[in-house]
Design a protein around this nucleic acid. Structure first.
Lengths: 195, 195
DNA sequence: GTCTATATACCGATAGAC
DNA sequence: GTCTATCGGTATATAGAC
């Protein structure tokens, strides 16, 4: 529950972001949002058209933050392999899952083009960003030239998203880490010996 | 809606399986189950203790089916690489997601040890089964000996689970296929040249 | 075993006072 | 802008007739 200097509309968005992450869209009720934000019904319907509208604002902000966090690592120093490794190994609240990716399992999100759009755009951007790095590595001779950069990037993003699934199923982050190490071992092996 | 020779309790379980796949646990109401099964409230509470009890029966059956389907491919003919490839490329209703894996994004499933158990056991079995095949391939010299079979298996399972996320985000199975091809290209490259 | 009736709570939204 | 009151509908469960 927020009691800071945040405006009511800010508190509503932040509360919604948390609840969407914890419980998804279907599992999040306006009532729960209002309680956490310390606001009444009226405030929510004054600032937003309804639950979908508020969720959209929350999702957009979460997507934006995830992009920025990924860019900080992917755009950092190091060889292409090192930057992808840094992304895969970056600190994560593994058991909470991905605040963006988890929304794809929400039927009401997938059913709405508007709500799905920021999710799609974010994961697509991530895939493209990583593909560029793989391509860069290929050009520099770090990766085998027969690899398809877009496909490898898809495998990288999928391993992360699937790692959350394995971790949450077992109740431990270990499975996530195992998947990441497995992928890195395959990727490392793909480094071209001709470099 | 089932009107076959199925018993009422069978129809309830099958309806629940469908709805859990489509809408998850939180998004599935007893009312929706009853409508699809063509049964009344009384029938459900006669055969099951409540929603969690019925869901548990449904999840167990789905988990069992998924295991059997995976085993049919993984236990089939071919080299270790070919069997893993067959698993990754096997026909899937990609946009519907994994009926077992998707449950890990359901807060009420993860919060219940009883409901989570069949999910955990299934994914863990799958990982172990694939690890055995990777290990077999390593022993036969098909895979590099420096690979950790358990880690590679985790990456394989994670790629599948994450592939569903990417596909559902974009509304197209293409991203799933791309991730699979990316992983296979890395795995293929890992085949030992000494075989 | 199956049905309908009923119960209490919550869902998402609207109305209108302040 | 924020609040409370209210709405029709649903969630999950129980009671009890048949």
């Amino acid at each position: 529950m927020y009691s800071d200097g945040m405006s009511t509309s800010e508190r509503l968005i932040e509360s919604t972001r948390e609840l969407l992450w914890e419980r998804g869209y279907v599992g999040t009720s306006p009532k729960a949002i209002l309680e956490r934000a310390g606001a009444g019904q009226g405030s929510m319907y004054h600032h937003f058209k309804g639950k979908p509208d508020l969720a959209l604002a929350a999702i957009r902000r979460t997507a934006e933050e995830m992009r920025a966090a990924a860019e900080r690592v992917l755009g950092g120093p190091g060889t292409p392999y090192e930057r992808i490794e840094a992304y895969l190994r970056r600190e994560r609240d593994v058991l909470r899952g991905c605040p963006v990716g988890r929304l794809t399992m929400d039927p009401d999100i997938v059913a709405s083009d508007e709500l799905r759009a920021p999710v799609d755009e974010t994961l697509d951007w991530l895939r493209g960003r990583i593909a560029g790095i793989v391509e860069e590595g290929r050009a520099q001779g770090h990766f085998a030239s027969r690899l398809d950069a877009g496909e490898v990037a898809a495998a990288v993003v999928a391993t992360v998203q699937g790692g959350y699934v394995l971790a949450r199923a077992s109740g431990s982050p270990a499975a996530f880490d195992a998947g990441v190490r497995g992928l890195l071992s395959l990727l490392g092996r793909a480094e071209s010996p001709t470099r």
